[in-house]
Design a protein around this nucleic acid. Sequence first.
DNA 1: CGTGGCTTTGAGGGAGGTCAAGCGCCGTGG
DNA 2: CCACGGCGCTTGACCTCCCTCAAAGCCACG
Lengths: 248, 248
Amino acid sequence: MATPDTVILLPKRTRPCTHDGARVSCENCSVRLNSVCAALDDNEIAALERIAQPVCFAAKETLFLEGEDAEAAYTVTRGAILLYRIFDDGRRQVVGFQLPGDFIAIDADKHHGYSADAITPVTLCRFPRKEFTALLAKKPNLLQRLYDTAEKELSEARDHLMALGQRSAREKLAWFLVHLRRRSARLDAASDTVALPMSRQEIADYLGLTIETVSRTLTALARDKVIAIVPNGVKVTDVKKIERLAAA
Amino acid sequence: MATPDTVILLPKRTRPCTHDGARVSCENCSVRLNSVCAALDDNEIAALERIAQPVCFAAKETLFLEGEDAEAAYTVTRGAILLYRIFDDGRRQVVGFQLPGDFIAIDADKHHGYSADAITPVTLCRFPRKEFTALLAKKPNLLQRLYDTAEKELSEARDHLMALGQRSAREKLAWFLVHLRRRSARLDAASDTVALPMSRQEIADYLGLTIETVSRTLTALARDKVIAIVPNGVKVTDVKKIERLAAA
DNA sequence: CGTGGCTTTGAGGGAGGTCAAGCGCCGTGG
DNA sequence: CCACGGCGCTTGACCTCCCTCAAAGCCACG
């Protein structure tokens, strides 16, 4: 459903990058300041660096499925990842898009609470569970930092709930774009052009809409000169207006 | 909107219970095994007990508002609490119902991420922030436990997202009742009767529906002999069917 | 016994879903 | 080089589920 059928059957194992064997260098890490690693001292960083492995996935590859044993935690360093859950009947709810700097945690029950697909080619910093858990026990600071991250995610989940429960299609799209714009601004320089690596279907499943409604609504926003649709993204032409729509 | 206008103006301070001055006794605590306190050793419990204060609120009282300084964390020991966020224009999204055993945490940024009203008369176990944070720094076990709780809440938030994004009104209500039934089963003995301390409006704002749709849908479920509507709750008469509806 | 809050019920309308067709882009192969 | 096919996106027509507006029922409380 979400992925071509052949993909499901292949054993999906984590794979090292082509520039393999290389150790992770936190010092040069591009997401250092946006990730869970910010606010760790040199000692802690060094300890993390020792257990970290760089890994890559091609676009559309599945990193893991909901319910699987969580073998590792990750920090995304490049690309975009889709987090989702599916019903038996195929309905899918996208619960998040992970961008560079975002963390993928290990649940208390040691099983993934959602599935994850690479949207674009991605690279991640992989922390094997055993080592990571051991480190966590020794470094309360890291645990604290992880806890803060979880709280932040909870807050974002509640924003998402607001959007799904209370907003109209137009407001949902406006909120989505504003939200994404802010997140990418933290990474690159702020820009009026928001990249949309995900498909219309993925946006629809994120917002609880159909693909047709997403398409129609984006077209309508473009007609009203709030945005302009560009290849692989949109350009926000009326920031005031879209933010008013998004905030409601 | 959510509360009578006079309530907004009153300074809402935490108030001790009528049976005041009493220290908290964790040993006799009714929610001991369902709360964040489970899985703590005697030492840790004793330390928590030392900083805990019993507090009470009457029905409809506001515990705190979104954005306020978080002065304390809480464990609910009796009653039901409504967690919600509101838009400027009055729309409200209920993000959760806290029942005995549930924890109300302090965010990383030290401000409440949502507002909280007592639905029924409630009693809580209050942990002042300063002392609680200090204790957290000394007891990594407690922090770990809190982190697990946060992860569990995240998972529940994602269930909630599934419901809001993908389910029909009928499925939403079925899911809500099944969910609530499970939670109350953890507290009392399992029972076919699910107590609904919250109003129809609160259910509606939780599920992203209107009060009329909630009412109509419950009536329809009763007509179809899936449930029976009883004072302050519903009786589940066809467990199989409601669970099939809820899971979808 | 009246008043007000909460809930139910009814009638009608509209936002968004469903079904279906058409478009544009790109990779493939003749 | 262009025809073809596939995929993702857009657009249109229609319909349904849920929202809106309105009124009446129910129950607790003064």
